[in-house]
Structures are given as structure tokens and as C-alpha cells.
Amino acid sequence: MVKVIASEVRKGNVLEIDGDLCTVLKAESIRPGKGTPTTHIDMRRISDGVKIVKSYRTTETVERAFLDEKDYDYLYEDEMGFNFMEPETYEQILVPKDLLGDSAQWLVENMRCSIKLFEGSPVAIELPQRVIFEIVEADPVVKGQTASSSYKPAKLSNGARVMVPPHIESGTRIVVMTEDGSYVERAKD
């Protein structure tokens, strides 16, 4: 374990809180005009999946767990969870469904992901920042909706819905951020 200040905690980090390992789901630093800056950390306890929310002063220290981090290729999903393979040794590992949560919709076959292991068990997973999907369904442009800030809903090939600019049509391949599902740009391929 290593001590880090609360303001340096990021999504995907694993902390030791009261003797339990917790995966950070969201970390947000708040700096009010008056008073002490604080960091709110949303976590999930690895042992039983219970969500925990803690607040720390930004200068307080928290215990960060040492984890093995390896790259794995995504293979497939079954009723037990998501199956990944280590590219050099071909060793397979099963990642429980609740570990990925909403991020699972961005998994694509053969995608290289970084899995953090604690004593051989997966405790956190990091997907690539950006993925490419094809638009299968996009609403038509509403006349007069030409402002650059206007967006329309579209459905991706994986079933997810995202907001895209009006000029994006069905069949277009786009780049999407895996963190929040936001449109980035047209794919350059």
C-alpha cells in the first residue's frame, strides 16, 4: 500500500478503506469560494459490491493498493462474465459483469484492455479511451437546426444511443469516448 493525497485519486484506482479494497468509480474535487477544498470519492467495495461515498479534504492521504496491471484482449461474454486472454501466454481470465458495469457496452471483440489484478483476481478494468462504432440509425435533420451546438440522437451498432451533430448519417463510422459515451469525431478510416 502507498499513501496518496485525495486530490490525486482517479477513476479506476483501488484504495484500501477500513481494511477493504474499493474500486474508485468517480472522484471529484470541489473548491468552494470559502472553506476547505474537498474531494468526493464514489467507490465500490470489491468484496461484496456495496457502493461507498466518502469525502476527504484534498490534502488528506488515502491508502492506494499495489496491483498487477496487465493487458488482455477481450474474447467474448457468457453467463459468468467477460472472458479475456493474455496475448503472450494465451492465459484466459474471467472478469465479473459487475466489475465493468455500464462500460461493458463499449467492449469490442479483440479490444486490448488493461486489467488490474490483486492477488490474481481482477479488481478493475480500463478500456481504451476511444472506440469506433458505426451508426445504424439516425434521426433526420430538423429544418433550421443548423446551429453548431445542436445534436440529434443516433443508435450505434452495439445498441447504445449517443448524441451526434446533424450532419452525421446512418452508415457513418464515428469515434466515441468510452468514459461517458460522447461523440468525438468521424472515424478517419
Results as ranks from 00 to 15, higher is better:
M85V: 10
E86S: 04
E86R: 03
P87S: 04
P87I: 03
P87F: 02
E88M: 01
Y90M: 13
Y90V: 10
Y90D: 13
Q92I: 11
Q92E: 13
I93S: 09
L94D: 04
V95L: 07
V95T: 05
P96W: 06
K97Q: 02
D98S: 03
L99D: 09
L99P: 09
L100T: 00
G101L: 04
G101S: 08
D102I: 15
S103R: 08
S103H: 07
S103K: 11
S103Y: 11
A104I: 06
Q105V: 03
V108I: 09
V108G: 11
V108K: 11
V108C: 05
V108A: 12
V108T: 12
V108F: 12
E109H: 07
E109C: 05
E109N: 15
N110C: 08
N110M: 09
M111D: 12
M111G: 11
C113L: 00
C113Y: 01
C113P: 03
S114P: 13
I115R: 09
K116G: 05
K116R: 12
K116M: 05
E119T: 03
G120D: 09
G120R: 09
G120W: 15
G120C: 08
S121G: 11
P122M: 09
A124V: 02
A124L: 02
I125H: 00
E126M: 14
E126W: 05
L127P: 06
P128E: 06
Q129H: 15
Q129P: 11
R130G: 07
R130D: 13
V131G: 08
V131W: 05
I132A: 08
F133I: 06
E134N: 09
I135E: 02
V136N: 00
V136C: 01
A138D: 07
D139G: 06
P140M: 06
P140S: 06
